[in-house]
Design a protein around this nucleic acid. Structure first.
Length: 689
DNA sequence: AACCCGGAAGAGGG
DNA sequence: CCCCTCTTCCGGGT
């Protein structure tokens, strides 16, 4: 049918190189070739990769070429690997496992090469695709097509740095394996796991991340003996469990060549095993799996997180090579419904057994995934020995009380943290997986009726960390204080926080937004945009210190910031007029505004503040004004003011509604979340600097 | 040098 | 197509 005979094209264009080494173009050709054979009925259409469109290559800093995060995964459109395996979609008999496929591919690749070398390649033209040979190819192709499908969908995968040379294929089988399918159910605990658990030397906790240095030694010795490993140089393992867990396969291999693999796998098993189901991440619970660092098949964490988690910050390091994974931060707006089974999921559909298994698997995967993360973050945030002096403080507060004015249920508004959590947990991610007791969300706070149930009428925005302020809030209010090495409250009451690690935080943000070239400069620009809407302000004189001017609930209830901005600016305009008049008067009196000027021009609006900054309604003037160029800005404000006014009029209740909202908000939240000290706080400059 | 600051343009998603 | 929220650059200041 097709004028082009891919059969002919295939071998000549691609040759018989290792599919894992194919270039984009080769992959494309291959795909088409395969397509021409209509080999797979399960896969509707093969995406073409004839362009580099799939890559974010237009960037100047092309060292950031990447394949994107798994953000907008559309599960139902993508057959999962397991599904394909089940249905034979890959050409493998049902029951074939992930690693089976891998082995199969490898094995046959070798055979293919051999055959080709022996001249067998020629049969591609005549075989019509049914020879064992082409069958083999189909297997390759299937894997690749799956990969292509995955990438073709909006699915985003962890950022990876690609070599600068020729373009690699979009998602080679290799990649596919490395970045396991998110929906691939985690296998049940293997016998090995059980064995491990049962046979660990006494005194060794099951969670390696909690091991002390001595524990690590004990463990290494144990492994040495138990698994008959070559001798391990203990000097190279003078570290605690957390550190040990941060070593990736390669790190381990360096330290104990032969045993590295084994050690790594064991650790991964243990981690997975021991970390039941950590609480949801502060941010978007992400689809399970994709980044599970504990994937049995590829224990090497997909995100090289482990490697550089610590130093990441400083190393402007190329691309995503090093930094803690934010996988759990990755949004899942479209929270992945356990992809595979449209038919299967839902509470009572299909065989309960299968259902259960799926759910469990998903949960397990999720757990596993967050596990890795947790481990990472745990390394940082250790509340004890951490710089996060403020962090610990925040922890106590944020976590337990500080907000819980209504005992019992977590007021959605009270603490930002509960907020975040709230948003995270209530997210549709409820996906097919019913909230089983083992669900990803069983944490202390969760024990209490989750706010998800009690979420008030206030339709709070569920931004899930996609907005910068939300992202920051969520990191700041992480119930486990995992990010205090990046950002921490200086004074939660007043909303003052410090970016401890600007570069690192920027990277996290970059990951979140999938702008891997994000840096502090850019991120801070975004922060600065918040000044004018009174979401943030800079704490004068202190580096990397900012202050939230609105509590999270308030923020969340703001439908869109621009509205807020308009509102603010309108107020500002009004206020400005007033203050100008006042100023004039003052000037007349010779009082002037010395105060204001002295304070770095920021004027901290000491004026209005009586009621606290948050008082959106009563307003205080705009932060902007400081930055403003009077004239111009004023004009602009006026403009906006008018516009806003009009729009308000239009929106019927207009100002009153708005006022109502802010007022309600204040009522609801202010009591639990005061920024009331704002003013003093702000004006206070931490001297030690 | 490392922060800050905002303007300008434009990307990208909704 | 518009709007919003950044992202990316940038020139300038501290």
């Amino acid at each position: 049918m097709s004028p082009i005979h891919w059969e002919d094209l295939y071998p000549s264009q691609i040759g018989w190189s290792n599919p894992l080494d194919w270039t984009l173009r080769e992959t494309c050709i291959h795909d088409k070739w395969i397509q021409s054979k209509a080999m797979s009925q399960n896969l509707e259409k093969t995406p073409t990769w004839d362009s580099e469109a799939g890559y974010d290559d237009n960037n100047n800093n092309n060292n950031n070429r990447q394949i994107v995060l798994l953000e907008h995964l559309k599960p139902l459109e993508i057959p999962t690997l397991s599904q394909l395996l089940r249905t034979g979609g890959l050409g493998f008999p049902p029951g074939t496992t992930h690693s089976d496929v891998e082995h199969h591919l490898h094995h046959h690749h070798q055979q293919l090469q051999g055959r080709h070398l022996r001249g067998g390649g020629s049969d591609s033209g005549g075989g019509g695709g049914q020879s064992p040979h082409s069958k083999d190819l189909e297997h390759f192709a299937a894997a690749q097509r799956l990969a292509a499908l995955i990438s073709a969908s909006n699915m985003k995968v962890p950022p990876i740095t690609l070599p600068t040379g020729q373009l690699p294929m979009p998602l080679t089988a290799d990649l596919l394996w490395r970045y396991p399918n998110p929906f691939m159910p985690q296998p049940p605990p293997s016998p090995l796991e059980s064995h491990l658990k049962a046979h660990l030397p006494a005194g060794l906790g099951h969670d390696p991340r909690h091991w002390s240095r001595e524990d690590v030694s004990v463990f290494m010795r144990y492994c040495e003996g138990e698994f008959d490993l070559e001798r391990i140089d203990m000097d190279k393992f003078q570290m605690n469990g957390k550190a040990l867990c941060l070593l990736n396969k390669m790190d381990l291999a360096e330290r104990c060549s032969g045993a590295g693999d084994v050690i790594h796998n064991i650790l991964q098993l243990l981690i997975r095993e021991s970390s039941g189901f950590p609480p949801n991440s502060p941010l978007t619970p992400r689809p399970p799996g994709l980044m599970t660092p504990t994937s049995p098949a590829f224990p090497a964490s997909p995100w090289p997180l482990l490697t550089g988690a610590v130093s990441s910050a400083n190393e402007s390091a190329g691309a995503g090579a090093t930094f803690p994974t934010l996988s759990h931060l990755i949004s899942q707006t479209n929270s992945v419904t356990l992809s595979p089974a449209p038919s299967i999921d839902s509470q009572n559909g299909g065989s309960p057994k299968h259902n259960e298994a799926l759910a469990a698997a998903a949960a397990a995967a999720a757990a596993a995934a967050s596990t890795g993360i947790t481990s990472i973050h745990q390394l940082y945030p250790n509340p004890k020995n951490n710089l996060s002096s403020s962090g610990s403080q925040g922890q106590g507060k944020g976590q337990s009380h500080s907000h819980t004015n209504g005992n019992g249920r977590a007021p959605s508004g009270s603490s930002s943290h509960s907020d975040s959590e709230d948003s995270a947990e209530r997210s549709p991610s409820a996906m097919s997986t019913p909230r089983t007791p083992t669900g990803p969300m069983r944490s202390p706070r969760d024990a209490a009726p989750t706010s998800s149930t009690g979420k008030e009428e206030t339709p709070e925005l569920n931004t899930n960390g996609r907005l910068l302020w939300d992202f920051l809030q969520q990191l700041l209010n992480d119930s486990q204080q995992r990010y205090t090495n990046y950002i921490a409250w200086k004074d939660k009451e007043t909303g003052v926080f410090k970016i401890v690690d600007p570069a690192g935080l920027a990277k996290l943000w970059g990951i979140q937004k999938n702008h891997l070239s994000m840096n502090y400069d850019k991120m801070s620009r975004a922060l600065r945009y918040y000044y004018r809407v009174n979401i943030l302000r800079k704490v004068q004189g202190e580096r990397h210190c900012y202050q939230f001017l609105r509590n999270p609930s308030e923020l969340k209830s703001i439908k869109n910031i621009s509205l807020l901005r308009q509102q603010m600016e309108a107020q500002a305009a009004a206020h400005k007029l007033a203050s100008q008049q006042a100023a004039q008067q003052a000037a007349l009196h010779g009082l002037a505004t010395v105060e204001e000027g002295s304070n770095g021009g920021d004027g901290d609006r000491p004026e209005s503040p009586l009621q606290g900054p948050i008082t959106s309604s009563s307003s205080y003037d705009e932060p902007t004004d400081l930055s403003m160029d009077t004239e111009e800005k004023r004009a602009r404000l006026h403009d906006r003011y008018k516009r806003e006014f009009m729009s308000e009029q239009r929106s019927s209740s207009g100002s009153s509604a708005e006022a109502a909202i802010s007022e309600r908000d204040r009522e609801q939240h202010e009591s639990r979340f005061h920024y009331s000290h704002l003013i003093p706080q702000v004006s206070i400059k931490t001297e030690n600097f």
